[in-house]
Design a protein around this nucleic acid. Structure first.
Lengths: 137, 137
DNA sequence: GTGTATGCAAACCGTTTGCATAAGG
DNA sequence: CCTTATGCAAACGGTTTGCATACAC
């Protein structure tokens, strides 16, 4: 059980370790693709009695404290994932699966942009949409 | 006046050239940053009497016919721009201004991803967030 | 005990849908 | 004339807010 880790992590982020939050963190740790509020809510419900509103408040709390980050895949809703090392996503337009890619050569490109446009880049988003290996068959 | 061009363009896309659509196309042509439904609605209202619903329907029609494309900047709403040559955006987190960049070296990176992950890339999104030249001062 | 987190109800915003009317070709 | 676009009203899904209560520390 990672329960203790999650509690500690929450307290370290100056958040009270409530049951809902602990389970939410566990769900984030277990899920391999970014979750949206509805998925998180449904999975939470299996273990704790929690309100939808609380889920949104948790998400915002976690975001504020930098525990998670928000992503959008153009679905008209937000997704969230643990705020780990920078990476990008391969989103299958057929089955919806999401794979992570860690390598990114955009930094060099960013430097170029910086020089040319005098734009100070703080972060960037890069998502690839297409067909995963399975769905190509 | 570009009115005639817009009408022609609409008809070429097999869409009836109604006043609202013609003005909408003109607004797209004039605006240098991607517009959202509300901005488009307000600007349309200055020239034609149009309903909010009609704006959304127009946007979807234009999307279907490939006249425009949809973009998201993580604002919880969609933005739209004319479907011209591929480019990416520099979004200023301070003033909200958006600059276009045309050069993109992501293709090479995409090939790499393709080989490594056997993922067939159909399109990608790449947006830079930071501070524009003005807002750095 | 004190301040933070939660539940509930209600509202908000962007967007979609159904249906009858209007208008482009 | 026939089909497509529009307006209006209503609904939808995701998200936020106000307020009183419950709970973590």
């Amino acid at each position: 059980m990672k329960l203790h880790n999650c509690s500690a992590e929450l307290r370290k982020a100056k958040l009270r370790a409530t049951p809902a939050r602990i389970v939410a963190m566990q769900i984030f740790e277990k899920s391999d693709i970014p979750v949206d509020s509805t998925i998180l809510f449904k999975n939470l419900k299996k273990q704790v009695d929690v309100d939808r509103v609380t889920v949104f408040r948790m998400l915002n709390n976690f975001l504020d404290r930098g525990l998670i980050k928000k992503i959008e895949f153009g679905e008209g809703k937000s997704r969230y994932e643990l705020n780990g090392p920078e990476h990008h996503h391969l989103i299958c337009e057929s089955c919806g699966n999401v794979e992570d890619i860690s390598y990114c050569n955009v930094e060099n490109f960013g430097d170029e942009v910086n020089r040319q446009k005098k734009f100070l880049i703080r972060r960037h988003t890069l998502e690839f949409y297409g067909l995963c290996n399975n769905c190509q068959k």
